[in-house]
Structures are given as C-alpha cells and as structure tokens.
C-alpha cells in the first residue's frame, strides 16, 4: 500500500561539538600581541620564512618556531573569493570578499575581509591596509581588524613578490648563520 500523505521534504540534523580550548605555547604570545594591536609572526630558523599566524611549527621543515617577528598591518592580496550565499551561523552578510593576504614581511598568507571598495574592484596584487576596530573593543582575536581596505598603491606582480620573499628568506638564514641577534625584530 501507499501512504497518502505528502512526504517530509527536509529534516534538520545538526551536529554540535562543544570544546573547551586552551591556547598552546606558540599561540599564546600571538594572542596577547593581537590584544595589544600587534601582529606577531614567527621566524622559522630552518627556512628563514616568517609565518603568520604562528602555529608553533614550520610547515616546510617541521621544526618548532619560537622567534617572534612583529609585522606591519599592510599587505598584498594573493587570492580572493566573493561569497554571495549566506553561511549558516555566520554574522557576515553577503555579498562579501575574503582574501588571502600576504602581510608585508610575512611569507605565509592569512585570510581576512576586504571592504571599502566595490566587489568587482578586488584584484590579485592589490595593496591593502588593515582597518582596526576601536581600541576598547580589542580582544584576543584577529577580528580586532575589522577588514582590510585598498591603499590605492600600484598593483604588485605576485610572481615578483614571491621571488622577493624567497630571496629574503635565504638572506635571513644566511645572516642568522653569521650570528645575528634573536631579539624581537620588526620586519
């Protein structure tokens, strides 16, 4: 026999995981720095690359990283995605653009929002600058930066930028071998 009823077309089957997280040794100083309004990366002594955000290990060499480097809050768009569909649970209202941004002095991109421009104006190689929230709202979060905005500077050739980064990393390793200081440096 058949069931003479309209079938249920959709059922909600959410899964929630509740965590209590503690910040690890590498993340802790990074979080305290962002609370102060500083962007702290880690220098990988093996590769000479500056990793941001620092996760405590160099993904290339596998070595633990300890050496803090304070980065500027400007960078270059390496890639981007414009989101047109709402994401359940997200407070972001589409359309919005998320970019992989290479901060000046870093060798690894981080993701953040791009705003103060038309969606269609975002391009690879665009120079961007962080727009910070009011200081009294700062927390232990990269959300202290509300978004990045275009600076209006000339576009950067990302292939040339990559070459520059690789050469700079080699130089850092070389200088290190010579016995340079390991104090906090500003990239």
């Amino acid at each position: 026999m058949d069931i003479d009823l309209d079938p249920i077309e959709s059922i909600a089957v959410p899964i929630y995981h509740h965590y209590h997280a503690t910040s690890a040794k590498a993340i802790t100083p990074f979080l305290h720095a962002i609370k102060r309004g500083e962007l702290m990366g880690h220098l990988s002594s093996a590769t000479g690359k500056v990793l941001f955000p620092p996760l405590g290990a160099c993904p290339e060499s596998g070595e633990a990283t300890h050496e803090p480097v304070i980065l500027k809050d400007s960078g270059t768009v390496i890639g981007f995605t414009t989101v047109h569909l709402p994401i359940p649970g997200s407070k972001l209202v589409p359309p919005f653009t998320v970019a992989n941004i290479l901060l000046d002095g870093a060798d690894q991109t981080c993701s953040h929002l791009i705003s103060e421009c038309e969606l269609g104006d975002v391009v690879i190689g665009m120079r961007v600058q962080a727009v910070w929230r009011p200081k009294d709202q700062w927390d232990y979060s990269l959300e202290n930066i509300e978004y990045f905005k275009p600076t209006g500077e000339a576009l950067v050739d990302v292939d040339e930028l990559k070459q520059h980064c690789l050469e700079r990393a080699k130089l850092r390793v070389k200088n290190r071998v010579k016995g340079n200081s390991t104090e906090v440096h500003h990239a």
Binding site: S10, A12, I15, T22, T28, A33
Partner: peptide, 19 residues
C-alpha cells in the same frame, strides 16, 4: 604575556537533509 588563555567554543554543523 605568557598567561595561557582558555575559552569555550562550539563547532556546529547545521546540516539539513532530504530524507
């Protein structure tokens, strides 16, 4: 600056499915 931070957080997968 070395004080370990801690927080609760929820990871939610808000699936709906057609049966």
């Amino acid at each position: 600056s070395n004080q370990i931070l801690e927080a609760d957080f929820e990871l939610g997968f808000t699936y709906t499915r057609s049966p």
